[in-house]
Simulated assay, not measured.
Amino acid sequence: MTRTIFIDGAVGTTGLEIGERLAGRTEFELIRLDEARRKDPVARREALNDAEFVILCLPDDAARESAAMIDNPRTRVIDASTAHRVSPGWVYGFPEVSGHKAVATAMRVSNPGCYSTGFIALVAPLVRAGLLPADWPYTCNAVSGYSGGGKSLIERFEADQDIAWRGYALALGHKHVPEMQERCGLSVKPLFTPAVIPAHRGMVVEVPLPLSAMKGVGTPQAMREWLANFYGASKIVGMGTPPADGELLIRGSNAGNDRMDLFVFDSADGSQARLVAVLDNLGKGASGAAVQSLNLMAGLDEMAGLRL
């Protein structure tokens, strides 16, 4: 059976990459609006209500507006914006953490943020297992390719080849923090320090752990083993192979994929550790995650169309 999909915001970076992952798939038929009708509220409302599945690839306010336009009980929604990531009634679209069944049966799914995906993948399972405390003031350091900032940031980086590093959210109010705190069950907001580098795509998210100053924590080996067991045989999220040369790299030539590799590095005496997630900000951090949730919601192979 062919299912109809409308991508609201199909010409943006996330929308285009979702479209690429759906190209050639016979399970879905895309409802398309030409340039003249793309911003027409009447045409959009019609498309939003005609589709079995809607994927919102819009700024937050526009995503809320589109979601409110759906006035039937049938259309199921995946929102790739920040708008609904901690909203009641929306299932968080991270099946490995939220539960595959919860995503598969949801009417409304909020796609995780790219940075949040790495942080939550590392911290949430360890807090649930009691290997990390829920009341610790965690720090999260992360770098991303500039494609995650949308068209304006892409244009800025490609026009100014002299930018080597861009630190931002210096007022400590990044929009990913609420979902990072809530989805990990933390009592203290993590201190999040994101940055953008002159690579089109790719992301490294790190959570440093001063283990000797933390009470009731597990050993780095226990953390490693728990994460490996938690993600089990998943072909999307799992433990990465520790680099023999002691380096993790983001390469400018990276073509991207929908996997996420996790690492637990530790000092020789076990007093410190670094939890690290490596992913594609446009893959598991955005479009790949949306397609994974779509597959589950449509009752299809979870990995169909993904780049693994």
Rank of each mutant, 00 (worst) to 15 (best):
K215D: 14
G130H: 04
M107I: 06
A106D: 06
A43W: 00
R32G: 09
A222V: 13
L211N: 09
E179Y: 04
P194S: 05
G149K: 10
M297G: 07
V196N: 11
V264M: 13
P178S: 11
H200K: 14
V204D: 05
I55V: 11
L16S: 14
K175H: 04
A290N: 02
I154F: 13
F192H: 14
W165S: 08
A228C: 09
H200Q: 08
T117R: 00
P133I: 08
G118M: 06
C57D: 05
S293W: 00
L191E: 08
L48T: 04
A106V: 04
G252N: 12
G145N: 10
R224N: 15
A169T: 08
H200F: 07
D50A: 09
V91S: 04
L306I: 01
I197M: 13
R38E: 07
S212A: 15
L132A: 13
R74S: 12
R259M: 12
D162A: 08
G305N: 14
T13V: 14
A228W: 05
N229Q: 08
V77A: 02
G167P: 02
P125M: 12
A233F: 01
D258K: 03
T14R: 06
V264I: 15
D162H: 05
G145S: 10
Q272M: 03
E20D: 11
V264F: 14
A286D: 14
G9A: 03
G150I: 06
V103A: 10
V204C: 07
L132K: 12
P210V: 06
E46G: 02
R128C: 03
K39H: 11
L30R: 13
E35L: 06
W90S: 08
V97H: 09
G93K: 04
H200G: 01
G167M: 05
S98V: 00
V177H: 03
V11G: 02
G185C: 11
V237R: 09
A213Q: 14
R224S: 14
I250D: 03
V177Y: 01
G218E: 13
N72W: 03
A304V: 03
A124C: 14
G238K: 02
G185A: 09
P194L: 07
R166P: 00
G270K: 13
K189I: 02
D269F: 01
D34M: 00
Q181D: 11
R74C: 05
E52V: 01
P243Y: 02
H176S: 11
I250M: 13
L308F: 13
V42T: 02
L56C: 03
S267Q: 10
M303E: 14
L126S: 15
L275M: 12
V103T: 07
I5G: 12
G216Y: 07
P137K: 07
D258T: 06
R156L: 15
P88F: 02
P133D: 04
A169K: 02
N257R: 09
V207N: 01
F230D: 14
A195F: 10
F157E: 09
G285Y: 04
S287H: 01
M239V: 05
V54G: 09
R45T: 10
A10M: 03
V237N: 09
G89V: 08
A23E: 14
S212F: 12
T105M: 07
T4F: 08
D269Q: 00
R85I: 10
M69T: 00
P59N: 13
M69W: 00
M214S: 10
